[in-house]
Design a protein around this nucleic acid. Structure first.
Lengths: 248, 248
DNA sequence: AATAAATTTGCAGGTTTTTGCAGCTTTTAT
DNA sequence: ATAAAAGCTGCAAAAACCTGCAAATTTATT
C-alpha cells in the first residue's frame, strides 16, 4: 500500500462520514495505529482535516464563523475581556445573544472549564468551538429576527436552572426605565434568565446607556454588574453606582 | 525491449489500475528497479503520472481526490431536491444534522409553510433564514463533534413529538446491519426521531450504501423511503426494495 | 559493414523514507 | 482518584532512492 494512496483513502473516509477513529482506520486499512496517526498528522498539517484526540474530523463541517463587520467591534472586544474575567472554573453561566456576547465567547480563556447555557444560535456556535466548556442549548421555537429561542417551554426550562452568573447583551438601559428592549418574546426570556441567576451582568457599549425602549426587562436595582468599554471611574456611572451596581 | 515501448506499458498499467508499485513493474517487465524508477521519473517530469515513494499514481486518481471543497456537493444537491419535494404545507418535519440535510434546507421552496424540528445547530441556522417556515430547536447538551443536541432531556422531548415525516442524513447503511453510526449519543437521538415519526426518510449518497459502522440505529425495515443521487431503477437498490423500502 | 558517438542499463555504495515497536507521557473517561 | 486509551519519542530494520560509473545497447556516420 502506497502512502499517498492510503492518505487518499483516509481523506475520502473522513469526508464521507465527517468523523473517524484511528482504530477504525487501522483495522480497515490494516496498518499500525502509529502509521494512521502519522498520516492524520500530515493531513492535518496540510490543512485537509482537523485532527482530534482519537481520530479526525472533516474540515467542511468544522469551519469557523465569519467574523463580519460588527458595529463598534473594538469597544465590544474590550467589554468582552472584562466580562470573561468574571467566569471561573466550574461555574454555570447563562447568556443571552447579541454581538457583545459573541465577542465574549471569543475572549474566553482556552482552558476554562465551565458550563454555558444559552438559547442563542450564534452564541452556541461560538461556544461549541471552545475546547473545554460544556454547552447546553435551551430549546423551543426559534425567533427569526433575534436568532434565539423563545416561548413558554424555554421560559420553563430556564426557570428550572440555577446559574452562578448571567450575562445579558443589552439594548437600552437608563435609571428611570431600567433595562429595556423592543421584542416582547425576547424580554420574557431575559427576565427568566435574571430570575434564575445569582449574579446578573449587563454588557453594554456606552452609547446604549441612558437610552430606553418600549418594554421593561427589569429595574436597574436587579442588575449586579455593569460592563462597558469605559473605565469605571467615568461619571456617567455615578447614578448606577448609587443604586448599588458594580461597574467594571 | 525499447525504452519507449516499456514506458508505454507502464503508462497503460498505471491508467488501468490507478496506482502501481515499482517492484511489480520490475518483475512484470523484467528490468531492474533502477530502470523502472528512471522511467517513472521521466513520465512524472512529462506530467503523465504522479510519482510517489514506492510507485506511482495516475493523474486522475490524485485530481479527483483533491477537487471539491465540500465533499460530493452535487450529489447532495440532487438528493436535497428529491427530499424537499416530499414536504407539504402544514407538515411537522423532524430532521437530523449533516451536510445532506443542510443542502435540503437550502433546497426548500420559498413559499413552504411547515414546522421544522431539529437538534442540529447548522441545520437550524439554515432553517431560520427561510422566510415562512417555523423552527423548533430541541435543547439539551450540545455535542461538539456533531454539532447536535444529545442527552436524555432531548430524547424525552423528541419522544413527545409526533411528526409527519423524519429526514435522516445517514452515515452508513447496509442490509445486514441496517442503519449504523459511530457516535453513541447521536444514535440515541436518531432512534428517538424514528420512533416519533409516521414516515422515515433516509438521505444518503450512494457511496455510503452497503457500508456499516459500529452502532445500529435501526433495521432496514424501519425505514420507509431511501433517497440517493442515483435513479431508483439502479440495481443496488434491489435488496432494499425487497424489504419494502420506497426508493427515490 | 565497421566503428564512433550517444544513449541506456545495471550495479555498488551510501542516503533517505517509511514503518512498526517499546517505553513513557498526556488526555480522557469512570 | 484511577485506569484505560491515545499520543509522543527515539530507534531499528526494511524498502526505496540517489549518485556516479562502467558495461551494454542503440543510433549515426563513414
Amino acid at each position: 500500500m502506497l502512502k499517498q494512496e492510503r492518505q487518499a483513502i483516509i481523506l475520502h473516509q473522513i469526508n464521507l462520514h465527517n468523523r473517524i477513529f484511528c482504530s477504525d482506520l487501522c483495522t480497515q486499512i490494516n496498518v499500525s495505529e502509529d502509521t494512521i496517526r502519522r498520516d492524520l498528522q500530515e493531513l492535518s498539517n496540510n490543512g485537509k482535516i482537523i485532527k482530534v484526540h482519537g481520530g479526525a474530523l472533516s474540515k467542511s463541517f468544522h469551519s469557523s464563523i465569519n467574523s463580519t463587520q460588527v458595529y463598534s467591534i473594538d469597544k465590544k472586544k474590550s467589554i468582552a475581556q472584562k466580562a470573561a474575567s468574571l467566569i471561573k472554573d466550574g461555574m454555570f453561566v447563562l447568556t443571552s445573544g447579541g454581538t457583545t456576547i459573541i465577542e465574549m465567547a471569543k475572549a474566553l480563556p482556552e482552558n476554562l472549564h465551565a458550563t454555558f447555557i444559552t438559547g442563542s444560535l450564534p452564541a452556541a456556535l461560538e461556544y461549541i468551538h471552545h475546547p473545554t466548556i460544556e454547552v447546553i442549548f435551551i430549546g423551543d421555537k426559534l425567533s427569526k429576527s433575534s436568532q434565539i429561542t423563545v416561548g413558554a417551554e424555554a421560559i420553563t426550562k430556564i426557570k428550572q436552572i440555577s446559574a452562578d452568573i448571567c450575562f445579558l447583551g443589552i439594548n437600552a438601559l437608563d435609571i428611570e426605565h431600567g433595562l429595556t428592549d423592543n421584542d416582547w418574546e425576547v424580554v420574557q426570556v431575559k427576565r427568566a434568565m435574571i430570575e434564575s441567576s445569582r449574579k446578573v451582568v449587563a454588557l453594554s457599549i456606552s452609547e446604549k446607556l441612558n437610552t430606553s425602549q418600549n418594554i421593561q426587562v427589569c429595574k436597574v436595582k436587579e442588575l449586579n454588574v455593569l460592563i462597558s468599554e469605559l473605565t469605571p471611574d467615568n461619571n456617567v456611572f455615578d447614578s448606577y453606582k448609587k443604586e448599588g451596581i458594580e461597574v467594571l
